[in-house]
Simulated assay, not measured.
Amino acid sequence: MLRTLVGFGAFGLFWGAWGATLPAVRTSSGVGDGELGIALLMVGLGALASMRFTGYLIDRYGGVVLPVVVVLFGASGVLPALADSVVTLSAALLLLGATSGATDVAINATGSHAEAVTGRPLMNLAHGIFSVAVVVASLGTAALRTAGADALPVLGGVGVVIVIAGVVVLAPGARENLRGSTEPKPKRRLEPVLLIFGGLCALAYVVENAWQSWSAVHLDTSLGAAPGLASSVPAVFAAAAATGRIAGNALLRRLRPVNLLVAGGAVAAAGSITAAVAGSAWLALIGIGVAGLGTSVCAPTIIGMAGAWAGPERRAGAISTVTTLAYLGFLLGPAAVGAASSVWSLPVALAGVAVLALVVAALGPVAARQVEREPAR
């Protein structure tokens, strides 16, 4: 359990610092806005390239994969601060994305394995630790940037912390067997159940990242909020997500996962529609917080359900499939909102996000019934 929580904490520590230090990376590398946008695409491409392969490695080699990919992730996180052109920045972000995707799969597989071994819910708590680390790292990095720190000392310091965590905390459990047996497994087709789980998780991530990316813009442009209020919204959303995940983990001691998924989707839909149609910035802020509470439990619950369905022999491979599909939703969500807002308006586009949250709530029981009919073989 400790390895899972430390892994998620290290993951959130970097991404919280990354968002706050990105302007400094842009300045130090000397790229323009368009070039930065192209370079940032490399993060997603690198992650998509590594996630399925990481699942195979975990199913083949077990717990040793986690500390290796975390150490590589911590080291790769420093590279963007050393870039001096769009080419070197793109190469650094491609490597960062690959190690980030590998770490994402490894920590989720380790968390699902811990749930199966202990019989206790963990995934929502682990994702909650990630959200807490994002908030703490964002605020800490903002303070360092205010004091004049550049990208290299910030990302270098975070990288050192992550590498130490990988060596001191994660490596001692590297012999942990995350596989069902040491027998080689035959190749299997891509089961429809995993496509259902991956699709649901992608929708959940569309809702989550849409609000994370567009909430401040919504308050600023749609509602004319003061700059300080608008800029605080992502932190409010992240804090609500952390609260929802920690509370959701406790609720799983009393609720079935599918019930928590349905409730989370419904709450996310209510918060999303409130924020989208709000006539005041403060009401929208409340709605965004409610949306964060609800959507926060959806993705970790779905990933946990997929791991429980797959069983020990195929858990990592199943989770890598689900998280790869889900990552597509995470990447495409903000772009989809932007495209919809250009056709209609930003409030209308965000109201569509509420509809997607309702779809997650409605299809949760369908996925659960499909699992009962098609147990892993």
Rank of each mutant, 00 (worst) to 15 (best):
V134K: 07
A368S: 13
A102D: 00
L72F: 09
F73M: 05
G289K: 02
E176N: 10
G12N: 01
A335T: 10
P80L: 05
S272H: 01
S215L: 10
L96H: 02
A216M: 12
A47W: 01
A276G: 03
S215I: 05
I129L: 08
L332S: 11
V277F: 12
G16P: 04
I129K: 00
T54S: 10
R377H: 14
L48G: 01
V193W: 00
P312Q: 13
I162L: 09
G12W: 03
F53D: 13
A226I: 10
A351R: 10
S232C: 14
I196C: 11
L285F: 09
Y61I: 11
A340N: 01
H218W: 10
R314Q: 03
S213N: 15
L203C: 12
G128W: 02
L203S: 08
G9Y: 06
G311Y: 05
P192D: 04
A270V: 10
V25H: 06
A335L: 12
V206L: 14
G46N: 09
A24M: 11
S296F: 02
P153D: 13
G46K: 02
L144D: 03
A92Q: 06
V355A: 14
E115H: 00
A49G: 08
Y205L: 15
V337Q: 02
R145F: 10
V359M: 06
S100A: 15
A24W: 02
L82F: 07
G55Q: 07
C201P: 09
G32Q: 10
A238K: 13
R52A: 11
F11Y: 09
V87L: 14
L285Y: 03
L93T: 00
A276Y: 04
T27G: 15
G19H: 09
G62H: 08
R377W: 11
A142W: 10
A278H: 00
A335Q: 08
P186E: 10
G157D: 06
